[in-house]
């Protein structure tokens, strides 16, 4: 569906994108993961034809974005980091304008718009001014805009940034819905978000691909070197000794101690694939140390 080979984008002496290559299969949801400034937005801008790469090729549905830009752009719906909204128009006016811009035939436009409006749940704000909408609604209008013309590919740049948790959940739900019949590239700097919606993930850092993997493999790898937080009552020394005897635990650090309540970090190197958490629990109960808190530490790339 999308083939990216050796993409480079140079700004002055700095390479914002430095030799990125990956492919996206039809029907796939690809997460684009990386810290801020890693080159996610630049890559997306190149894929959508906003910027031209210094070198390398992007092929969308077999059309090179530089050689057949119109054909390639027809297949893509794009939500940039800053949703491109005209604040002086109502939602419906704006979406109609986008229909004109994407050369959607007049026949059936109304039905299509009605479908999109209900899909992204903005029916009740259809006649309101875009400038008067809340951030969450603006983001939805942005997504609605990307959906116009029924493109096969959706490219969403940080679709949940700046939204409150409720809105984030709703947008994620919406994306999962869209994934049923779209190929989606989604960028984010939050691992959990990518985990929540994506099939595969490309991690980039400093303009380079750091890893490409499926979500399940990635989770394994991540849990393979994950950290657990354990808070308990009892002697730190005893607990350390008991736990270090267990297989798959590579390190224990003391975090906080408050009289007889202690918190420790446990670094897990689980090569065998079995869950070390069960054995920790039994070890703790055997020693008679009550567990006050026991959770895995979140992974983000920040």
């Amino acid at each position: 569906m999308i083939e990216i080979t050796n993409l480079v984008k140079r700004y002055g002496d700095k390479k914002a994108v430095n030799g990125i290559s990956f492919t996206v299969q039809k029907g796939e949801v690809l997460g684009f993961l990386g810290p801020n400034g890693a080159g996610k937005s630049t890559t997306m801008n190149i894929i959508t034809g906003y910027l031209s790469s210094t070198s390398g090729t992007v092929k969308v549905n077999g059309h090179d974005i530089l050689e057949e830009p119109e054909e390639a752009k027809k297949c893509i719906g794009y939500l940039p980091e800053l949703p491109p909204l005209y604040l002086d128009m109502t939602v419906l006016e704006y979406l109609n304008f986008m229909c004109d811009l994407k050369k959607v035939p007049r026949a059936g436009r109304k039905e299509m718009l009605a479908k999109i409006l209900s899909m992204v749940k903005i029916v009740d704000v259809a006649d309101r001014l875009v400038g008067n909408l809340s951030k969450g609604y603006k983001q939805r209008v942005g997504i609605a805009q990307a959906l116009i013309g029924d493109p096969e590919i959706l490219i969403l740049d940080e679709p949940t940034v700046g939204l409150d948790p409720n809105q984030i959940l709703e947008i994620r739900k919406l994306i999962r819905n869209l994934a049923k019949d779209h190929t989606i590239i989604l960028s984010s700097h939050i691992l959990s978000e990518v985990q929540a919606v994506c099939d595969r993930v490309v991690i980039i850092n400093h303009g380079k691909v750091a890893a490409i993997d499926t979500i399940t493999d990635l989770s394994k790898k991540l849990s393979g070197s994950s950290k657990l937080l354990l808070s308990f009552k009892g002697s730190v020394k005893d607990v350390k000794n008991a736990l270090q005897a267990l297989p798959g635990i590579s390190g224990i650090n003391e975090r906080v101690s408050d009289s007889d309540i202690h918190e420790i970090d446990i670094t897990v190197s689980n090569e065998k694939g079995s869950d070390v958490r069960t054995s920790i629990f039994y070890a703790m109960s055997k020693g008679g140390w009550p567990i006050l808190e026991f959770r895995s530490l979140d992974h983000t790339l920040e």
């Binding site: 480079v8 140079r10 031209s52 790469s53 210094t54 070198s55």
Partner: peptide, 12 residues
Amino acid sequence: EKLEKDKRSKTL
């Protein structure tokens, strides 16, 4: 490599 890769924007 840098020279070669700048060719595209130079051409444009």
